[in-house]
C-alpha cells in the first residue's frame, strides 16, 4: 500500500507585504525556503540555500525567472530550481498558494 505524504500549508506573508523582486526567507522545521514575488505577481518558492556555499538566496537580485545568489552570483531558476551554466547544482522547488491575499508555501 502506498503512502501519501500530506503537505503542510505554511503561511508566508500577506501578499501586499511582499514587494516584487525582493525575497522573503521562511524557516520551516529548520528548513530554509526563499519565497519570491515576481514582477508579474507570480509567487515562487525554492530552497533558501545556494548549493554552492549555502548563500541566502532570499537576499539575491531577482531578474525575470531567476535569482542571483548574493555570495557568488550563482544564477538559480525560480521555476525548476536549477543552477544555470556555467555552474551546476539545483535547489528544491515548492508549490505556493495565494488564498484571500495570503501567501502560503506547501511543504
Amino acid at each position: 500500500m502506498g503512502t501519501t505524504q500530506v503537505k503542510q500549508k505554511v503561511f508566508v506573508a500577506n501578499f501586499a507585504e511582499l514587494p516584487p523582486r525582493i525575497g522573503r526567507e521562511i524557516v520551516v522545521d529548520g528548513l530554509k525556503i526563499a519565497v519570491f514575488r515576481l514582477s508579474d505577481d507570480r509567487i515562487k518558492a525554492i530552497g533558501g540555500a545556494c548549493p554552492h556555499k549555502q548563500g541566502p538566496l532570499a537576499e539575491g537580485i531577482v531578474a525575470g525567472e531567476y535569482v542571483f545568489c548574493p555570495l557568488h552570483e550563482y544564477k538559480v531558476s525560480l521555476i525548476d530550481g536549477k543552477v544555470q551554466e556555467p555552474d551546476d547544482g539545483c535547489v528544491a522547488t515548492y508549490d505556493t498558494l495565494v488564498e484571500e491575499d495570503k501567501v502560503y508555501v506547501l511543504v
Binding site: P19, P20, I22, Q54, G55, G60, P70, L71
Partner: peptide, 19 residues
C-alpha cells in the same frame, strides 16, 4: 530601485559568508 540594489545596500549591512 531597492530591488536593484545589491543585498548590502538593500539591508544596510555587509553580508557575511554565512548569511
Amino acid at each position: 530601485e531597492k530591488e536593484s540594489r545589491y543585498v548590502n545596500e538593500r539591508m544596510h549591512g555587509n553580508i557575511q559568508k554565512n548569511g
